[in-house]
Structures are given as structure tokens and as C-alpha cells.
């Protein structure tokens, strides 16, 4: 049984528990048919709940503590991963992991924001909130990939860049801006995958690429619903409304051409079946990478820049 159950998941989990109890009973009793019908009922219920999720509920799934994180995907999708550390200027940011790995037998550079699962690991990972050295480490690894002509895959999952005193001293804004600039013209294919939370500039700092993929139950926006609520409504109580207003889900963003492709998640969300989630993502990554490899690099960069230039809606 999952440790964390979201409010709207409760009816599903309850039925699942019932089934597992019945399965124990079925060793002595003939209740196969009942189990079957209950399983069908779960599917129906799940379909019903998950096709009507509010944006705030999607934000909650995106933050589910049992959701697979960057290192889980790296471990499940790639082989031969070697983690590389440090920005060579200041230190090693634990909120950002990266290194060479093999995807489908070919070397790629994988880079991503990493959260922790409990208090201890969350403190170690700074809750997935990067400092400037994290962005500079990411850039260093991307430049390394460029040098050896290996494609880059980045995983976005952060509640934001760390708003700390030292982060400002070391140039949080400059570090993010520099990455946006350098990623725009990096001479290897870049695939960006939003796997959880995509909070503002902190996420975008490793989020410029040729293909932007987003898992089904993630959010990506200029601000978190809570902060938006506190600023615009001057209260923390309007996060649901803020989430609706911000239109921050994959379904919303594909309409604005901010993302290119939605990566489907297993029934009930990636946290219900991380292995299945990884299999789906792996297939899509291989497919996208094969397409990108066919495009000449100068053309690819031109297309990348054009893609971001096309983003925006205005009246003239």
C-alpha cells in the first residue's frame, strides 16, 4: 500500500485493499467472479476520477512523494550511468545530478533536478532547489556533451531555484540567464522532460531544448499556485483558483505550443507504477532522439531558437 494517499485516491485505494483481502480468501472460497467485477469497478472509478482531475489535483500528483525522481528514471531507463560532480568554480550542488549514461546502447548526457524522499534526503538535496553552482554544473556537463557530440536529456522537477542569501551572492539570476543563453545554441540535440514540478526560472534554467516533453500529471508555470495566491489574492487560501487561472498542466501547455508532447502516465499516475512510467518514457525518448539525430545541427539550432521565438500571444 502506498504511504501517501491523496484525498481523491482514497476510494481507489480502499477498493484495492478489499481486493487483496478477497484474494487471500479466494484460496479457500470460490469468489473469482466477484474479484473480477471489483477489479473492473476500480478501473471504471479510476478512469472517472482521473479524467476529471482539477488542476490543483494534478499539482498534488506532481508533488507525490512516491513519484519517480530523476535518479529513478536514469536508473530505470539508462545503463552505465556515471555521475559527475561539481561546477569547477565553487562546489557540487546536490539538487542537480548528471552524468554520462547509455540510452538504448548510445551515450547520452543526462541531467536533472533531484528531490529527496524523507527529511534527511530532502535536506541533502535541498528539496530539489538549485543554487547557482547547480546551474553552472549543468552547463559544464552540457558543454562536455557538446564537445563529444552526445545528446543531452534534462529532467525538470523542482519547486524553484533556491531563494537564499548565498544564492543571490553567487548570482542565481546570472547562472540561470547564462544557461538560457548557452542552451539556445548548444551544438547537440537537447530533449527536456518535465517529470514533476516545473517551477518558474528555477526549472527553465535547464529547460531550453529541441523537444519539450511533459509527463501527464505535472505542472509547469511562472509561479507556484501557492505563491501566486499569496501575491494576487494576498492570502495562501486561493491555491486552487490560482492553479486553475495559471493553466499549468500538460494539456494546457500543449495548446500554447510551450511543450511538444505529453508523455502518458500509467493508470493512476507515475507513482502507482514507476516501472511502467519509465518504460513509456524510454520508448518516447528513443523515438524523439532518433528524429532529432536526422537533423543537421545548424538547422536544429535555428529551429530551436525559432521555436522559442514563436512562444507568446499578443495583439497588434
Amino acid at each position: 500500500m502506498p504511504k501517501t494517499i491523496l484525498e481523491f485516491e482514497k476510494p481507489i485505494i480502499e477498493l484495492e485493499q478489499k481486493i487483496s483481502e478477497m484474494k487471500k480468501l479466494s484460496e479457500t472460497l470460490d469468489i473469482e467472479d466477484e474479484i473480477k467485477s471489483l477489479e473492473e469497478k476500480i478501473q471504471q472509478l479510476q478512469d472517472q476520477i482521473y479524467s476529471n482531475l482539477s488542476r490543483w489535483q494534478i499539482v498534488q500528483i506532481a508533488r507525490h512523494p512516491e513519484r519517480p525522481y530523476t535518479l529513478d528514471y536514469i536508473q530505470k531507463i539508462t545503463t552505465d550511468f556515471i555521475e559527475l560532480h561539481g561546477d569547477r568554480y565553487f562546489g557540487d550542488d546536490k539538487a542537480l545530478v548528471g552524468g554520462f549514461a547509455k540510452l538504448n546502447g548510445e551515450t547520452v548526457m543526462v541531467i536533472g533536478q533531484q528531490k529527496g524522499r524523507d527529511t534527511k534526503s530532502n535536506l541533502y538535496r535541498n528539496f530539489g532547489m538549485m543554487n547557482p553552482e547547480g546551474y553552472r554544473k549543468a552547463l559544464r556537463l552540457m558543454k562536455l556533451a557538446e564537445k563529444f557530440e552526445k545528446p543531452v536529456i534534462t529532467f525538470l522537477d523542482t519547486p524553484g531555484a533556491y531563494p537564499g542569501i548565498e544564492a543571490e551572492e553567487r548570482g542565481q539570476a546570472e547562472a540561470i540567464a547564462r544557461n538560457l543563453f548557452e542552451m539556445s545554441k548548444l551544438r547537440v540535440p537537447i530533449i527536456v522532460v518535465i517529470i514533476g514540478e516545473g517551477a518558474s526560472g528555477g526549472a527553465l534554467g535547464i529547460g531550453v531544448g529541441d523537444r519539450i516533453l511533459m509527463l501527464e500529471y505535472c505542472w509547469y508555470s511562472v509561479i507556484s499556485p501557492e505563491s501566486c495566491s499569496s501575491i494576487l489574492w494576498r492570502s495562501w487560501d486561493y491555491k486552487e483558483q490560482a492553479a486553475e487561472a495559471l493553466k499549468l498542466t500538460a494539456k494546457d501547455l500543449i495548446q500554447f505550443n510551450i511543450i511538444d508532447r505529453i508523455v502518458p502516465e500509467p493508470r493512476g499516475g507515475a507513482h502507482r507504477n514507476p516501472d511502467q512510467a519509465a518504460i513509456i518514457l524510454k520508448e518516447i525518448l528513443i523515438d524523439e532522439l532518433n528524429k532529432l539525430k536526422k537533423i543537421k545541427i545548424d538547422k536544429l539550432i535555428e529551429m530551436r531558437i525559432q521555436k522559442f521565438l514563436n512562444m507568446g500571444v499578443y495583439l497588434e
Partner: peptide, 14 residues
């Protein structure tokens, strides 16, 4: 303007 505003960072930098 939600994520569209965020993308202006990438757009101008690109």
C-alpha cells in the same frame, strides 16, 4: 500570462 511569460526568458535569451 503563466508559462507564456516564463517562456519570454528563453525567447529573449535565445
Amino acid at each position: 500570462e503563466g508559462a507564456l511569460s516564463l517562456m519570454q526568458l528563453a525567447k529573449t535569451s535565445a
